[in-house]
């Protein structure tokens, strides 16, 4: 099929073909399966703390979570403030100095190895489980 024939087929055709619908259905199924595996499947081990790296370097030993009845911890980092509560952490609203505040919009993270990334400040916040504590601590 030449270039002109392809353009003609677009001009005369419809935006969706049957193969497109199969393609979209397959893609939707793959994305849903991936979402389930990453976000909703039971975690292999419980989270125990929060690891913070700035420009690839570990800022401190992993922070332990406060107990459920304790106040959340507020940790000022270079460029944002991290809030750690029992079993979760997030970037405090309005604390980030980056232009699009994408790290704030990532919301709470609660699962092992889940991350909040702030590319402009070079910060990676990660939830760690027992095995991570042993290797780092």
């Amino acid at each position: 099929m030449t270039k002109s024939e392809k353009i003609e087929s677009i001009k005369k055709g419809k935006p969706f073909r049957l193969t497109d619908i199969f393609f979209l259905a397959g893609l939707a199924a793959a994305v849903l399966a991936l979402c389930w595996w990453v976000y909703w499947s039971p975690p292999a081990y419980p989270v125990q703390g929060v690891e913070v790296r700035q420009n690839g370097k570990l800022v401190e030993r992993p922070y332990a979570f406060p107990k459920p009845d304790e106040e959340p911890l507020e940790i000022p980092l270079q460029g944002l403030t991290l809030v750690i509560e029992s079993g979760a952490c997030y970037v405090k609203k309005g604390s980030s100095t980056c232009p699009d505040h994408a790290c704030e919009r990532m919301g709470k993270i609660t699962r092992p190895n889940q991350k909040i990334v702030c590319i402009p400040n070079g910060i990676v916040i990660r939830l760690v489980g027992e095995s991570n504590f042993i290797s780092i601590g």
């Binding site: 392809k6 087929s9 055709g13 935006p15 073909r17 193969t19 497109d20 893609l27 990334v117 590319i119």
Partner: peptide, 30 residues
């Protein structure tokens, strides 16, 4: 024309974002 422009565009968008994510992972080392 077995696969239409919309599927081609979709594949392009997925590839574009996946490659950017891969590069960000390499740069951040995470």
């Amino acid at each position: 024309p077995k696969i239409g422009l919309i599927s081609i565009s979709l594949t392009g968008a997925i590839t574009h974002n996946a490659v950017q994510l891969l590069i960000a992972s390499l740069i951040l080392g995470q």
